[in-house]
Amino acid sequence: MRHVKTLLGSGGFRKGEIFVMCILLSGCSPSREEGGRAGQAGDSVYVLRWEEVEAYMNAAPSPVQVAVWLRQEKVPFYKEPLHDPTLAGRYSGLKGAANLGIYLTDMAYAHATGHHQEAYDYFSSISRLATLYNIEDILSIERIRQMDKLQDQPDSAQKLFARYYGEIQERLNETGQQLMLRHMILGGWAESLHIILYLVERGNNNQPLSELILLQRSLTPLLVKLYSVDTLHSSVSKQIVYYLQGLQAEFERLPASEPSKTPTTTIKQGVIQMNFKQQVQIAPEHIQAIRAKVEPLRQFFIEV
């Protein structure tokens, strides 16, 4: 059944075929037929439509991508906004998964800014959490050391991190832990937004960071949808949707970018260049208002 469910996640089958397979494989309830899995929500057992969830889940950038970008932008490192790595052992379940995403993002940020000792500390925290989700072999001590050895080869280290992150996603999917994966992605997203805001608050309010904040206006409605699919069954999802809707409202108050967001596009030898001619500068009061909405969501995840 697990194999079929994972495949359903691709959104590839038509409903009739899904139903037929459920009959054959037995133990397949009508709700599972909808592509969901029975999952522990922390407050109840429920199923959800995985095709819907998956469509929105990958919209948020992964810590891997964020790290490459942060390194390219040469942003400074600040330790203060990052989560406490010594708390890793105190999380489990959905909260643990969200903190896995948070620690992965903190580690990626530390690594991208050349702070390898901090990155190593976060990797160790992640390794402690990994045992809860059957991914300890992916984040083993040997692998941490392997990555640590690449301190002077940041490109290779980032590639290795991309590989590990890919393996985590795949393992969570294949072992029926999609709810955990969803939380890991949201936790990572919240942490990256938290770090970006901190960078802006510390006077790094430049165009690329502003663009990244403005991007959230398009992204947050998708994250609301990502968690709206099971608010009837899960008080955790209901709470998260509440926080996300607050954020969404705040992002909608941001000044609109250029009148036309349609870019000029050129293609040369298979390389597509899109020029959006976008000029964005976000006022400090907007940053403050967004911060006020992000903080409760982050606290919801990290409080012990």
Partner: peptide
């Protein structure tokens, strides 16, 4: 670099698979 994300679908009769993705400047 590949972060493990992929999309796949069986497409019938003009169906499309829709993907949302964040693209960063500078990458």
């Amino acid at each position: 670099s590949w972060d493990g994300r992929y999309w796949k679908a069986e497409l019938y009769g003009g169906e499309v698979a829709e993907i949302y993705y964040t693209f960063f400047r500078g990458l």
